[in-house]
């Protein structure tokens, strides 16, 4: 095949390229038209000058960047600590729920009730209950900081979700895999650790990353416990200036934070899909 592509193939490539170019141009044109229409609609709205002054004040945005960014750092800490705890706790609960045998019945029941409760309660209620209820007990040695209790509340709620994701992953591993492992003499525990979990984790990576993206914005809710995070920092400035621009700024920063994780989740989803379909040629 040193002769290079034939004339027919070259013609086909040229045709495909021109089609691709045309569809790119079409996409570009329709995007521009849409953006222009959206822009004109909003800026011609009767209340636009007022909205612009209240939500998009550049001066106030500039002044609030520093405190809001400082608050975002708090959110980031809650996120990273929380995500790590959620992963461990969620996996633990999932494993408890998949345990077989009558001895484990109480553990199974407890973990099932836990998941039922914390998937059901709105996160904000959990935040109030943990953030204000626990300090009110006035127990020795129990932390009272909003940061710690807020993180705990977020972890409690998200662990319930993540446990269900892990459980679905564990159950998606085909029983024949367990049979193969047990036939080699591996114990139940060894089978779970070395054969089932590695496959389960791989399957659930995309939905887990999706939960991570959701967690990323929900850490903003700890502001209700008067933790000075990005949202709370904005709230303080809003209270002083009666201008909502800091909220918009905080929202923008949260989006910027979420974009890389979202792209990462997409990437893993595509890869997982490709692996699943691999070999079917």
């Amino acid at each position: 095949m040193t002769t290079g592509p034939s004339a027919v193939e070259l013609d086909r490539r040229a045709y495909r390229l021109s089609r691709a170019r045309r569809s790119t141009l079409g996409a570009l044109a329709s995007t521009l038209v849409f953006a222009l229409l959206a822009y004109l609609t909003i800026t011609n709205a009767p209340g636009w000058p007022r909205v612009r002054a209240t939500f998009f004040d550049l001066e106030i945005a500039r002044e609030s960047v520093r405190p809001v960014l400082a608050g975002l750092w708090v959110n980031l800490q809650v996120l990273l600590i929380g995500a790590a705890l959620v992963a461990v706790l969620g996996l633990g609960i999932a494993l408890l729920r998949t345990l077989r045998g009558p001895i484990f019945t109480p553990l199974r029941i407890v973990s099932t009730i836990y998941v039922d409760i914390f998937r059901g309660i709105p996160l904000i209620v959990v935040l109030y209950l943990v953030g204000f209820g626990v300090p009110a007990l006035r127990l020795e040695g129990v932390p009272t900081s909003g940061f710690v209790l807020g993180t705990a509340a977020v972890v409690l709620t998200y662990s319930a979700y993540v446990a269900e994701v892990f459980r679905a992953g564990i159950e998606s591993v085909h029983p024949s895999q367990v049979a193969a492992a047990r036939s080699l003499g591996l114990s139940h525990r060894q089978t779970t650790r070395l054969v089932v979990l590695p496959q389960a984790v791989r399957t659930v990576t995309p939905p887990l990353l999706n939960d991570f993206v959701a967690l990323q914005k929900d850490v903003g809710l700890i502001s209700v416990l008067t933790v000075t995070d990005a949202v709370r920092a904005s709230q303080i400035i809003v209270g002083q200036t009666f201008n909502f621009t800091p909220y918009v700024l905080a929202g923008l920063l949260f989006v910027l934070l979420a974009v890389p994780s979202a792209r990462l989740a997409d990437h893993f989803t595509v890869r997982a899909l490709r692996r699943q379909q691999g070999g079917s040629r």
Binding site: P5, R12, Y15
Partner: peptide, 25 residues
């Protein structure tokens, strides 16, 4: 798979009843 157009050929042609089915048109 190439004949059934489940794959795109990288060169050459396939005709079905005298029609070049590898033509992208």
């Amino acid at each position: 798979r190439c004949a059934g157009l489940l794959e795109t050929v990288d060169d050459g042609q396939i005709w079905l009843d005298g029609e070049d089915i590898t033509d992208p048109r």
